[in-house]
Simulated assay, not measured.
Amino acid sequence: MTRSATVPAVENALLNVVDVEATCWDGQPPPGQPSEIVEIGLTVVDLASGTRVGKHRVLVRPRRSTVSAFCTELTGLTQAEVDTGLSFAEACRLLATEHDAGTRPWASWGDYDRNQFTRQCQATGTRYPFGRVHTNAKVAFTAAHGLRKRPGMSQALEIAGLPLEGRHHRGEDDAWNIAALVLHLRARDAWPGPGRPEPS
Rank of each mutant, 00 (worst) to 15 (best):
P29M: 07
R63A: 15
E39F: 05
P29I: 04
G41I: 11
L47P: 10
I37W: 05
G54H: 03
G32S: 05
P30R: 01
V53R: 12
L59I: 05
E36C: 10
G32A: 08
V44M: 13
P29A: 08
V60W: 00
V38E: 03
V45N: 03
S35T: 08
V53G: 06
R63P: 00
V38C: 14
Q33V: 05
P31H: 06
P62A: 07
V45K: 02
V60I: 04
Q33I: 04
P30F: 02
Q33M: 15
G41D: 14
S35Q: 13
P62F: 09
R61N: 12
Q33W: 07
P30K: 01
L59P: 03
E39G: 06
R61L: 12
P30G: 02
G54N: 04
K55D: 13
G41S: 13
Q33A: 14
P62N: 07
S35I: 03
V45P: 03
P62Y: 08
G54M: 00
L47W: 08
L42C: 11
H56G: 00
P31L: 13
V53N: 07
P34V: 13
A48M: 12
L47S: 08
P34C: 12
L47Y: 08
I40Y: 09
T51L: 11
H56N: 15
V44R: 15
R63G: 12
R57F: 00
R57P: 00
G50Y: 06
T51H: 12
Q33H: 14
T43P: 06
Q33E: 15
T51S: 10
T43V: 12
P62M: 06
P31C: 04
R61A: 05
I40Q: 10
S49N: 12
D46I: 13
E39C: 05
V44N: 02
E36A: 12
L47N: 07
G54I: 00
G32I: 10
K55M: 01
V38N: 04
Q33K: 10
P31Y: 05
K55N: 13
R61H: 10
P34T: 12
R57Q: 14
H56Q: 05
G41W: 15
P29C: 07
V60T: 03
G41L: 09
R63C: 10
S49H: 11
S35Y: 01
R52K: 14
A48K: 14
V38A: 05
V58M: 12
L59A: 02
P34K: 11
S49G: 05
P29L: 09
E36P: 11
H56E: 09
V53F: 02
V58R: 01
G50E: 05
P31Q: 11
D46Q: 10
G54L: 00
V53K: 11
E39L: 02
L47D: 07
G54W: 00
A48E: 15
G32K: 09
L42K: 13
H56F: 09
V58D: 00
V58W: 02
G41C: 10
L59N: 03
L47I: 13
P62H: 08
Q33R: 08
R61M: 09
D46H: 12
V60N: 01
V58G: 00
D46F: 08
I40R: 12
P31S: 11
E39D: 06
V58Y: 01
L47R: 14
G32Q: 07
L59C: 04
I37E: 06
I37L: 05
G50A: 06
H56M: 01
L42M: 13
V44E: 15
V58K: 00
P62Q: 07
D46S: 10
K55F: 04
R63T: 14
E36M: 10
P34W: 11
T51F: 02
